[in-house]
């Protein structure tokens, strides 16, 4: 355990934690668009700026990839931080001024519009990389990545073709802070990143369980029996309860 201060309040953290997660856990309000607790911090959006003072020297830094260190003092808001965050927001807003999620963040930071020319590609993607990280780190599919660099960087499947390693799990679409990863789903199929998957349904109730690729991946990762993935959670619970009742009360409810 190590101790430092955030806005004058003493806080404790584990070694290896970053400032943002410690601050959020203690209820401090720091804006961010590229951070998610289930994946590694990346530092792309630059909104989570704070001022860190260590051994008498202060600097502005992103909090998501700054380690919690003993004895430092962190300031989460002052005029300079607020002004810089508003400028960062103006820059991010250029990528899609009409995106509702971005506008909500802009409102929160007191930015009503961007004074800058809009980016040439306005697809709402702010290149935060959350989709790429969740796909790689949490799912293990590695279906998408950044391609290109500089102002031409974008996110795509290899060669912009349907990805062979995509399992159609939708984690990328769910984690996207601007909600712009498109997918469609009807009764039998799901389409994402240009690839269409058939859907597996619960043998009992017919509810959608996921794609066969997704279930196979989870089976591999968890080592559970294949039959575990035949039914949905609700039906599995029901089955378990029935079996439990049979053993305990001989099938007769008391």
């Amino acid at each position: 355990m190590l101790t430092f201060t955030i806005d004058g309040q003493t806080v404790q953290a584990e070694e290896g934690q970053n400032l943002l997660e410690v601050a959020l856990a203690h209820g401090f309000d720091i804006p961010t668009l590229c951070y998610h607790p289930s994946v590694s911090a990346y530092g792309a959006c630059r909104l989570c700026l704070v001022e860190v003072t260590q051994r008498g020297r202060s600097r502005i830094t992103t909090s998501c990839n700054y380690p919690a260190l003993p004895g430092i003092s962190v300031v989460t808001r002052n005029d300079r931080i607020d002004r810089l965050r508003r400028l960062v927001m103006e820059l991010i807003l250029c990528r899609d001024p009409g995106n509702p999620q971005l506008q909500a963040m802009a409102d929160r930071l007191g930015v009503d519009r961007t004074r800058l020319r809009f980016a040439s590609r306005q697809d709402g993607c702010i290149l935060c990389g959350l989709c790429e990280r969740i796909c790689r780190e949490s799912i293990g599919a590695d279906a998408i990545s950044f391609v290109g660099r500089g102002h031409e960087r974008r996110l795509a499947t290899p060669f912009d073709e349907p990805s062979e390693s995509c399992v159609g799990c939708l984690a990328c679409a769910m984690v996207c802070p601007t909600q712009v990863i498109e997918f469609t789903q009807d009764a039998d199929t799901r389409t994402i990143w240009k690839r269409t998957f058939t859907l597996v349904k619960c043998k009992e109730c017919g509810a959608v369980l996921g794609t066969p690729e997704e279930l196979a991946l989870f089976q591999r990762k968890t080592g559970l029996d294949a039959s575990y993935f035949d039914t949905c959670d609700a039906c599995r619970k029901k089955q378990t309860a029935t079996a439990f009742a049979a053993v305990t009360w001989g099938g007769q409810r008391p």
């Binding site: 990346y42 530092g43 792309a44 959006c45 630059r46 960062v88 820059l91 991010i92 250029c94 990528r95 800058l116 020319r117 980016a119 702010i126 290149l127 990389g129 950044f146 290109g148 660099r149 500089g150 102002h151 031409e152 960087r153």
Partner: peptide, 23 residues
């Protein structure tokens, strides 16, 4: 030069340089 040589990770460097270039 810099807008294409930036790696493109930080929004400030990527968008900031590109917008300064526009101006």
């Amino acid at each position: 030069f810099l807008r294409s040589e930036s790696c493109g990770k930080c929004s400030t460097c990527r968008e900031g340089i590109a917008r300064m270039y526009d101006i």
